[in-house]
Amino acid sequence: MFYRGKYVDGGDGREMGPKRQRILNQPQSFYGASGSSSFMYNAAPPYAYVGPPPPFPVVRLRGLPFDCTEADVTEFFNGLEIVDVLFVHKNGRFSGEAFVVLGYPLQVDFAIQKNRQNMGRRYIEVFRSKRQEYYKAIASEVSDARGGSPRRSTRARSYDDGNDSAEHTGVLRLRGLPFSAGKDDIVEFFKDFMLSEDSIHITLNMDGRPTGEAFVEFPSAEDSKAAMVKDRMTLGSRYIELFPSSHEELDEAVSRGR
């Protein structure tokens, strides 16, 4: 199935994830469940969709565990291409809901088949959604983040408690990265520090997909400690959590994704 042009609700399929502005100006390929390229959006598309244009490929999840991570959502939708996961917060707390943008419209039908299947001990409800609902949720998340209300899951709080007293080795672990974030995005996030792309390590799962985490090697322990000022600042629409780490933890995480 091929489609070139706008979705029926006004989106053009390239406005997904944290690199939304950049993706608008560049060709972007999305992949099917098998991992092979299903189609590519180009400036001069050779294909046309027969019939009405498809809807924007987004679903809404409800009933998620309150310590749910992007990796958990990816595992729940195993076999589908996840472009973006947006967790929804209310009054600074995770609501148990999320929006998931998929690689292309046909995958929405497969995602809906996961309705009322379990994630751990919780059964998850999966609904069709719309581009407008997804972007409204993004606007709300960004507004809350700018308002200075930090949002932390139980898992994040338990780890954060030792951050102030943790020893700095020059390595930081990043959590909460959008799946489409690249090394250049992380360099821009830490633009006040002298970093090269070689010092950034985005971790992958066993399927070779991003986990939402990365490790950054700073020139010195003093630099990594100073960089903690960026903790819970936003990259795109997502706020990023930072943790002091070590070269040993970095090596272990990178080796797991090989």
Rank of each mutant, 00 (worst) to 15 (best):
F127Y: 14
K191G: 06
T154N: 09
K225F: 12
R122N: 15
L204T: 07
D67E: 14
F110V: 11
L242C: 03
I82N: 09
S246V: 03
P53K: 01
A226R: 12
E222Y: 07
R20H: 10
V254E: 00
V187I: 11
D198Q: 12
N25S: 10
E249M: 11
E15W: 03
S140I: 13
A227H: 04
A48H: 12
K130E: 14
R128N: 14
E188S: 15
F2Q: 09
D198M: 08
N163H: 06
F127N: 12
K136W: 07
D160I: 09
D9A: 01
E188R: 15
R232W: 09
Q117S: 14
A111C: 07
E81A: 13
I186Q: 00
V59P: 02
E141P: 00
L64K: 00
K6Y: 09
R175L: 08
L195A: 04
R121Y: 14
P105D: 08
A71H: 06
R22G: 12
M206P: 06
L204Y: 07
D192I: 06
S255R: 15
G120V: 05
R256W: 09
D9C: 03
F110Q: 12
D207A: 15
P65M: 06
R232A: 12
G212L: 05
D9E: 13
D223S: 08
R175D: 09
T154A: 08
S95N: 01
A221F: 05
Y239T: 11
Y159W: 10
F243C: 00
F30E: 08
A145M: 08
P150A: 04
D184T: 15
G13P: 03
Q117P: 02
L106P: 04
F87E: 01
V216Q: 03
T74E: 09
S140Q: 13
G257T: 07
V8W: 02
I124W: 02
S149I: 13
N163E: 07
A33H: 07
E125M: 09
A111P: 05
D109L: 14
R238T: 06
G103T: 04
D161T: 11
L242K: 01
G10F: 01
S149Y: 09
A48Y: 08
V108L: 02
S158E: 15
E70F: 09
M119Y: 06
H247N: 12
E167Y: 01
A145L: 07
G208R: 03
T234W: 00
G63S: 04
V50A: 10
M119L: 15
N163F: 03
D72K: 00
P18E: 08
V142L: 09
E97C: 15
N115A: 11
D198R: 14
N78K: 10
